[in-house]
Amino acid sequence: MSTKWQQFKNSYFFHSFIHDKVAIVSFVVLVMLVVCSFSAPIIAPHDPYDTTTIDVLDAETPPIWMEGGNPNFLLGTDAQGRDILSTMLYGMRVSLLIGLGAVFLQAFLGVVIGLIAGYFGGKLDSLLMRLADVQLSFSTLMVAIFISAIFQAFFGINKYEELAVPFLIIVIGLAEWPQYARTVRASVLAEKKKEYVEAAKVIGFGSGRIMWKHILPNTLSPILVISTIQVANAIMSEAALSFLGLGMPVTKPSLGSLINSGFEYIFSGSWWITIFPGILLVILILVINLLGDWLRDVLNPKLYKG
């Protein structure tokens, strides 16, 4: 174990990490945000899902440093009297869950399709890649908005809100698999010609085993780079859908629906309901994007543009 750690510490990867201030800061902030959001039930001062503790009389309390602030509510309360800080922590957990879930789904689909297309080639390959082209030309966000609108019309708003989390994961996950598929395929095409693959074939391993155990590990670095950026994209898409009222309901809010629910109150001056979740969302997406940029520079994989 210690040698593994030693190896990691001497690696180029670790070296460029500790010499890049932006990467360190982003990483630390991201870890803090993730820890805070998943330990929300423990550290949050209030439980926004528990309706018995919410008092409408507390509604629209400004943050603590402003006139009329209540020390009970550090960042103020929203229009229903929920503590903004707690709602934000719970909301970020929902956003992260959906973002990660969607990326797992798209990575799984994309990797499988990319491996198959690259390894077998021929008609199957051109069919799958044509499909990926068509799918990519419609942007994720556009497809996701349309599909959720259709589903909402189909199921009615109440049923939709119950299914919101798995549904958002599936919609955002299905919309972006081509990114993975094209990149994995490109690496597979390069790897396929190498000798170790031929050796594996000569030994008599099956195609499945060669694809999963031999080729896949060598295509990991582009997958890692894409995944980082895709998590940011997925969180952004989820926020946009929720903002349009097509995502998470206000009773079980994500950051996007918090921003949406606070929007109408900025005209009466209650800016904190919208701005605080907004800032948190921007920080979350920004640190993930910065880490993604750094990873891309370090690992420098051949990525598919577009």
């Binding site: 940011a232 952004m236 926020a239 946009a240 903002f243 996007g256 921003i259 929007f263 900025i266 005209f267 001056g269 800016w271 919208t274 701005i275 907004g278 969302l281 921007v282 997406i285 920004l286 994007n289 910065l290 940029d293």
Partner: peptide, 22 residues
């Protein structure tokens, strides 16, 4: 530009409204 792509468009819009209109 990294900051730019990380700010959702609806948030930019809300900020603009808050600062210049409200």
């Amino acid at each position: 530009s990294v900051v730019g792509v990380s700010i959702p468009v609806f948030l930019t819009a809300i900020m603009l409204i808050y600062i210049f209109s409200v």
